[in-house]
C-alpha cells in the first residue's frame, strides 16, 4: 500500500481540485482530508457519512469560582496570559481562564493551593468515515478556534490507512494542509511520497522552497507539479529548475483554466467535468505519477 500526500506550502494553488481528480482516476483508493482547518474535499467527493466520532484532545483549565480564594497563584504561573484578573466595582478580585489562550499545560491546576481548578478534556472536533462515489473517505472538522490539529491529522491518516489495509486498497490519497507547521508535519511524516502543487509566482517559489526543506527534513520523496503555469511561463521554467535542483521529480504542468472553477461550482472533479485544457493536463500528471 502506498500513502501519497498532496501539499502546497502556499494555500490556494489548486491542491484539492487536483486531488479530487486523482480520486476519480485512482480506482482502488482511500481518501483522507487532512486539511482539517479548512476541509474542502467533501464539497467535491460529496461523502455519505457512515460513522461520526468525537475528537477530544488535550485539556483546558477551568476555575471553580466557589472554591477560588483569589490568591493569584494561577495568574502568576501561567506563561500564556490565559488567566485573566478582573476587579469588580466593590474591589473584589476574580480570576478566570480565557479558553482561547489556554495552552492546556495544567501548570495552574498543579499549583493551585486549594485545588480549585478543573482540567476537563477538550472536545476539539469531529471526524467521519464516509463513502464516496470513488471509495471510502476519512475526514474531520476541527472545532472553531480549536487546537491540536496535528493530532487530528494523525488520527485521520491512521484511520484511512486502517481502512485501506482492511479493504485491500493499494493507495491512500492524503489532502494536506497549507504551511509548514504542526498539521503539515503530521500530514507528511512517514508517508511514502509527497506531491507539491505550486504556482509560478514569486510567492509560490518561496513557499515551495520552504516546503521542500521540510520534506527533506523528514526524508519524504517529493514530486512537483505547476498549476496555472501559463500565468508566467518564465517563472514556471525557473521554479521547475529550482525544484529539480532541490531533488524533486517533475510531474507536469497544468494551465490556468476557468473550467476548474466551473467544475467546483458543479461539485464535480475537473476530470469528471471534462471540459477545458486543465482536465487533460491533470490526467497527464496522474499518468506520469503512475509510471514512478
Amino acid at each position: 500500500m502506498t500513502e501519497l500526500v498532496i501539499i502546497s506550502g502556499k494555500g490556494g494553488t489548486g491542491k484539492t481540485s487536483i486531488l479530487a481528480s486523482f480520486a476519480a482516476l485512482a480506482g482502488n483508493a482511500v481518501f483522507a482530508d487532512c486539511d482539517v482547518d479548512a476541509a474542502d474535499l467533501h464539497l467535491i467527493l460529496n461523502p455519505t457519512i457512515q460513522s461520526r466520532n468525537v475528537f477530544s484532545s488535550g485539556h483546558e483549565a477551568v476555575i471553580r469560582q466557589v472554591d477560588c480564594t483569589q490568591c493569584g497563584e494561577c495568574y502568576d504561573v501561567c506563561r500564556f496570559d490565559a488567566v485573566i484578573k478582573s476587579e469588580s466595582h466593590s474591589g473584589e478580585l476574580k480570576f478566570t481562564v480565557d479558553p482561547f489562550s489556554c495552552e492546556g499545560c495544567g501548570v495552574c491546576v498543579w499549583f493551585c493551593p486549594v485545588k480549585a481548578i478543573d482540567f476537563p478534556e477538550c472536545v476539539c472536533g469531529e471526524w467521519y468515515v464516509s463513502d464516496t462515489r470513488f471509495g471510502p473517505m476519512v475526514h474531520a472538522r476541527l472545532g472553531i478556534a480549536a487546537e491540536n490539529s496535528g493530532k487530528l491529522v494523525s488520527l485521520v491518516r491512521r484511520e484511512a490507512k486502517k481502512i485501506a489495509d482492511e479493504g485491500g486498497r493499494d493507495l491512500v490519497l492524503v489532502d494536506g494542509p497549507p504551511g509548514i507547521g504542526c498539521p503539515v508535519i503530521a500530514s507528511i511524516t512517514g508517508s511514502d511520497a509527497a506531491i507539491v502543487v505550486t504556482e509560478p509566482t514569486l510567492s509560490g517559489r518561496h513557499d515551495l522552497e520552504r516546503v521542500m526543506e521540510l520534506t527533506r527534513h523528514f526524508q519524504i520523496p517529493v514530486y512537483v507539479c505547476i498549476n496555472k503555469w501559463d500565468i508566467n511561463p518564465e517563472m514556471t521554467e525557473s521554479v521547475e529548475s529550482d525544484a529539480v535542483e532541490a531533488g524533486a521529480v517533475l510531474l507536469g504542468r497544468i494551465p490556468y483554466d476557468r473550467e476548474v472553477t466551473n467544475a467546483q461550482i458543479r461539485g464535480v472533479s475537473v476530470v469528471e467535468h471534462g471540459k477545458g485544457p486543465a482536465s487533460e493536463s491533470i490526467r497527464g500528471v496522474w499518468e506520469k505519477w503512475l509510471t514512478m
Binding site: D37, E147, S149
Partner: peptide, 14 residues
C-alpha cells in the same frame, strides 16, 4: 494572518 481557523490564526487576530 495565516490561513485557516486554528491556533495560529487566533494568535494573529487576537
Amino acid at each position: 494572518c495565516p490561513p485557516g481557523t486554528s491556533c495560529p490564526v487566533i494568535a494573529a487576530v487576537r
